[in-house]
Design a protein around this nucleic acid. Sequence first.
DNA 1: CACAAAAGTAAGCTATTGCTTACTTTCAAG
DNA 2: CTTGAAAGTAAGCAATAGCTTACTTTTGTG
Lengths: 96, 96
Amino acid sequence: MVKIIVRTPQDIGALIRARRRSLGLSQADLASKLGTSRLWIMEIERGKPRASLILVLQAMSTLDLEFMTDDEGRSAKAAQTTSRDAVMSEMRRRSK
Amino acid sequence: MVKIIVRTPQDIGALIRARRRSLGLSQADLASKLGTSRLWIMEIERGKPRASLILVLQAMSTLDLEFMTDDEGRSAKAAQTTSRDAVMSEMRRRSK
DNA sequence: CACAAAAGTAAGCTATTGCTTACTTTCAAG
DNA sequence: CTTGAAAGTAAGCAATAGCTTACTTTTGTG
């Protein structure tokens, strides 16, 4: 199970297409599961840059795919800003 | 470094907001780095569902964030479909 | 080859995005 | 309490997303 990094709409298109195929679904099948049009599936698989976020996320979940991202241990502990960040924002405040 | 799963526009909004703050950037700062409007930053941080994919991906990269997904070892090896998938797609073909 | 499903292309339409500008409200620090 | 930056709200507008329908091309099997 290798981690793939997703940076571009093309990456997402390729991911969706590969997964759709590996599940044996046609574009029409996926479109109807998702409640979108077959045309939309076509376009997203081609890397449509301005596709809407929610449809992409729904497609991911329909295909049992998940996005992950690294959290830099900032979750609960650093509710109060770190002193370094405080300084930085102070600096910006002062500069013009 | 904990992996966070991102499933909804709200998840993305929270992620972007947290990271923006931890970098000491204002919404206006981020908007101008990204070439979008401050209003867009506002909306995305609130979980705008239909925001456009490309802007979201650009925001991620501007903030040094990455999306990852699991590849199920399907990369090169299984260029030719697995026999099980072949059967399934065959079945679908025949059924109506 | 021949046939059917899947995939791709096109055109036209409405709803929505993302923008600008301008104001208001909240926050942080003296 | 005052003040300036950041954040939130609002209105109006051009560009475009995503839809339907219809047609064409490609793909995979017998």
